[in-house]
Design a protein around this nucleic acid. Structure first.
Lengths: 338, 338
DNA sequence: CCTGGCACTCATCAGGGCCGAGTGCCAGAC
DNA sequence: GTCTGGCACTCGGCCCTGATGAGTGCCAGG
């Protein structure tokens, strides 16, 4: 195992490199950190760290930079999560408190995260699968045409058209609306199918077709919309990526445009606790030179969706993790209140 | 006024520069276009064009590139709108036809535009101000808490919470719902305020407070949501911008993140017909080296929102304009059908 | 009014030499 | 055993230089 001091050297290298964006040499290290040893000793330690694969040199006779493995060790063992300052906390709360609806909450969250971390922020809309039904509404638009509106406890609204096989009277409609709501309100989406299974049977023969149709549209909505939506922001921060630009930024922007990729990315994050994926740990090819910090958030104790940031592997991990965690908490609170 | 041939020379310069991204010289011009004159003559024409401010040289003894003014003349006088090929048209239609709801329509449109033009696409959600009410729904969530849902003819849904000053019975609720809808369904948003003005008076004394509250929330929603939303895509195409990258792309990405800026940008476009803003014609500072091609689209003959693309001033104007126009038409059709 | 010719400008590129940060290794000190 | 100072070595980055060539402006003649 690596000695205490060698870990300290690694920590110093990571910190300096994150700050300067330039390979860090042994002399500079001893000057900027109180390691209590000479550059020569540090060089020996560096050689050892390089043998183990934690750092590398871009070219002979340049300083060292951390490898993905080095960042991993740093994140796992050497770095804590840096809590935000209380002015920052207040700013977050103030900013999020002004939101008027769900879109607004998500939008503000994205901007906030992007600003705080100076990186690209990704926020997933609260998922339908894990949330519960607040209300189901049925509106008659034409004799044989209904609109189904589904409202979730996270404030999300989905609407669908329903073409009925037969005209459906206002009284039947009110009846269906009432029965449907009494069964599903407050229930989780995953439970809905069983709960409404036998509903058609309790209706007159002539209405059963329509009731079945309505139900199938409802169930479809629940499943279909498991395909989540998300919002991203702060892409301008990518321009601070590095010097070798175009080649670096291109694949990242492309990856960010693919909702599927991002959803998979967030999906891979653990439900609770924070997940940090560094460089090549990310499956997607365009993101092998980026790190992703993600965390779940929710209105209660359970996560209903995830949010996170995407940035260069050379990022301020403690600070980023702190910001991500704090934002997730506040968003959770906001959702719980509304 | 410029002679016929000089205009021809300008056209040739624009076309070549758009193709090669490199300053174009007199010799190359005569080789690639049948101008029927020698390089020396072209040089004289170029000198004249430069005097008039239509072209410029990046440095002495380099070829010429068009100025903003040159592009303007090109767009106004020299270029038509290039119609899409019929396979392209079919592809558009197929791609848009698969959309399931409004979000999906807008999302697909953005991706389509970005792909077709290989530039950044911006699509505004159909505006509430110009559209009409399809339905207003009121749901009772708690004795003194209602949810108001507004559905527009463009398929958009907005919901708001209403805290009532007094409990509100189910029958009163049904009554209000019915009367409200009979007055506003099919009407334009701008007409709604007058139409509901005297509604509270027709209710019992005890319910008037609640009715007024509901109405004020409704009106607020109409106004508030004039603040439009929009979706952008294709930002990865910015990487094909130029060679001098970071400095060019940075302000553009920043501008694109500001919804306000984009909305203003689209807002400045004419309601009907296509608007092309070139380089410094764009008010926003970050966009002075980009051109914006925008057009209104709508479900009927009237525009309900706008869409367009943002690209380098050095863009294929005829092709871009053709794509933008075609996409706007098809989206209009889709909206009209649903 | 067009054309060919000519002198001139200047960005780009490859080559060469210098500089200095940083390394690895080794012999000696604690 | 571990740390330290010293030293030779490597190699990317920088600057200067000269050659190259595309492109121009101008002018005299058709």
């Amino acid at each position: 195992m690596l000695s205490e001091r060698r870990l300290e050297v690694l920590r110093a290298i990571v910190q300096d490199y994150v700050g300067t964006e330039e390979p860090v040499g042994s002399k500079a290290l001893t000057q900027r950190h109180q390691l209590g040893v000479s550059p020569a000793t540090v060089r020996n330690d560096m050689a050892a760290l390089e043998d183990e694969g934690f750092i590398a040199q871009p070219h002979t006779s340049a300083g060292r930079i951390p490898t993905d493995k080095g960042y991993r060790l740093f994140v796992d063992k050497l770095a804590g999560v840096k809590p935000l300052s209380s002015p920052e906390r207040r700013a977050i709360q103030n900013f999020l408190d002004g939101a008027v609806d769900l879109d607004d909450v998500v939008g503000r969250t994205v901007r906030l995260l992007a600003q705080l971390t100076r990186q690209v922020a990704v926020v997933q809309y609260p998922s339908l699968t894990r949330s519960t039904v607040r209300h189901v509404e049925l509106l008659s638009l034409a004799p044989a045409r209904l609109m189904l509106v589904l409202i979730t406890d996270t404030g999300r609204v989905e609407q669908r058209m329903v073409d009925c096989p037969a005209p459906f009277g206002e009284t039947s409609l009110a009846d269906l609306r009432a029965r449907l709501n009494s069964r599903v309100v407050g229930r989780r989406f995953t439970d809905v199918p069983q709960l409404v299974q036998d509903l058609p049977e309790s209706f007159e023969q002539e209405d059963r077709g329509t009731v079945s149709t309505v139900l199938s549209v409802l169930l479809e909505t629940l499943v279909e919309e498991t395909e989540e939506r998300l919002m991203i922001g702060g892409t301008a921060n990518l321009t601070r990526f590095g010097h070798d630009f175009p080649l670096t930024i291109r694949p990242v922007l492309e990856a960010l445009e693919e909702q599927v990729v991002l959803l998979k990315l967030l999906g891979e994050a653990k439900d609770s606790g924070m997940t940090v994926r560094i460089g090549h740990e990310n499956a997607h090819e365009g993101l092998t030179s980026t790190s992703v910090v993600a965390v779940g958030y929710g209105s209660g104790d359970e996560a209903v969706a995830k949010l996170g940031v995407v940035g260069p592997t050379r990022m301020d991990y403690p600070g980023t993790m702190g910001a991500v965690r704090a934002v997730a908490r506040y968003v959770g609170q906001i959702l719980a209140e509304s």
